[in-house]
Design a protein around this nucleic acid. Structure first.
Lengths: 238, 238
DNA sequence: ACCGTAGGTTAACGGTGTTAGGTTAACAAC
DNA sequence: GTTGTTAACCTAACACCGTTAACCTACGGT
């Protein structure tokens, strides 16, 4: 029972079966949600017995982890496309990244749910996500915008009264977390049905809601946006 | 199979057993997480057989719903305390509400997970939450702050280019969703381990991170905060 | 005395993840 | 050519799970 853990993936003879299992797991997840993903259902779809899966994966959690890694790869393509469609250092990139985030969540709902489910997913699996799971893309866009002077950060005085004061080198991470939190919160609230408690006239979609909230988000970072009708906003230096 | 649905809760004779079941479910959930909450475990803890639970609840989902309602009541007490500790119309209330939100999530993690899990929880159960699940508290605080002139909303021009333009009467809801999304996103990202990908020096706690991000959030709504060392920020009228 | 019903019980069904142990086919070594 | 090894499966089974069916018991009303 040495458990077939030779390090490299696909080392075992028929990597096709392994891929077929991952495909079946993805399909079941997308169609029926997390509850529909069972070892026996996956096995039935592939055409093997349930225990055969254990020759390729260390159990259901390992299978799910591998599906999550796949999901993050797909997720990354959404974000990269958004990045590529707007110039480096521009604030418009943030909006595009946010909309890509939303679009991925809505078009790949089951993926999104297991990617960011609050279940205690073993950190070991999450740490080796492809390129950090897209966070580095956001951080780069933020750092570029700061370098380009399109983001007016709060003065150091505003951070001075924190118990654990932060230095300027943390600003890109703080801004990234601010932006990430906002869009992530919006979409997770929508996916758990909580945002129905907010009654904006016309009962807008999540994307509409995001666009309506965008001015607040943009103002939060004192963004200096371009000349496409979006308000030009600066912050008083003091 | 009339199924004991006589309308009022607690109509059945021994309401103590019903409460004991809810207590046991809460405890199991808090200790072992969602997976530890099984009908048989609850029954064992109460000292009855598993099927006895079906005399008080319509199934596991109904039991979970009732636990969620209890959790939202507890949640509401956190928020009300935060509201009571700051004057009406003040912007400081937002920060206190946010910190109460965080504190509840961290001190009642299992509760928070099932309250806002992205699983498709039947909307019928969520609609009749106690007082809308706390959203009305946030909305009232926002509306008060707007009335008090402590929130400088974006100009109508900034909302004009939306596909579904919003009117002024939606501003309190928009601001509420903005604030809610930000803090909810931050805590959910923390609870799923995603925020470990953000590297701020000192590896601050979620609360530290929230406080560090607060300036961005506050600036987002052009808040006019008081004289306690927090930066005084206004937005240019144009 | 009778009936209905609240409040349980045990047994069972079909499902789940997982393990144990056996089987087959390929392949390498002597 | 036989042997040994191992990958790649299989079936059977275990211990759970939510849920249902059928049955029992005690009590309150007529």
């Amino acid at each position: 029972m040495t458990a077939v853990q030779g390090g490299e993936t696909g080392k075992h003879g028929s990597a096709q079966v392994e891929q077929a299992i991952l495909d079946a797991a993805r399909d079941l997840l997308a169609i029926g949600g997390p509850d529909a993903l069972s070892m026996r259902q996956v096995a039935d779809q592939v055409g093997v017995s349930a225990t055969a899966i254990y020759h390729y994966f260390d159990g259901k959690q390992d299978l799910v982890n591998r599906v999550v890694v796949r999901a993050f790869e797909r997720f990354g393509s959404y974000l990269r496309d958004a990045m590529a469609s707007h110039p480096e250092g521009s604030v418009e990139r943030f909006g595009a990244l946010g909309e890509a985030y939303l679009r991925f969540a809505l078009e790949n709902e089951a993926y999104f749910r297991i990617m960011f489910s609050m279940q205690a997913s073993d950190p070991a699996a999450l740490e080796q996500l492809p390129e950090g799971g897209g966070y580095h893309l956001l951080r780069r866009a933020v750092a570029d915008a700061i370098d380009a002077g399109n983001v007016r950060l709060p003065t150091a005085a505003e951070f001075a009264d924190l118990e654990t004061p932060v230095g300027c080198e943390s600003y890109p991470d703080l801004v990234s977390m601010y932006l990430w939190s906002t869009v992530h919160g919006l979409v997770t609230l929508a996916l758990c049905g909580a945002s129905t408690r907010c009654h904006v006239e016309g009962a807008p979609s999540v994307v509409d809601l995001y666009r309506a909230i965008t001015p607040f988000i943009v103002h939060g970072i004192g963004a200096n946006v371009g000349s496409d009708g979006v308000a030009q906003v600066t912050r008083e230096s003091q």
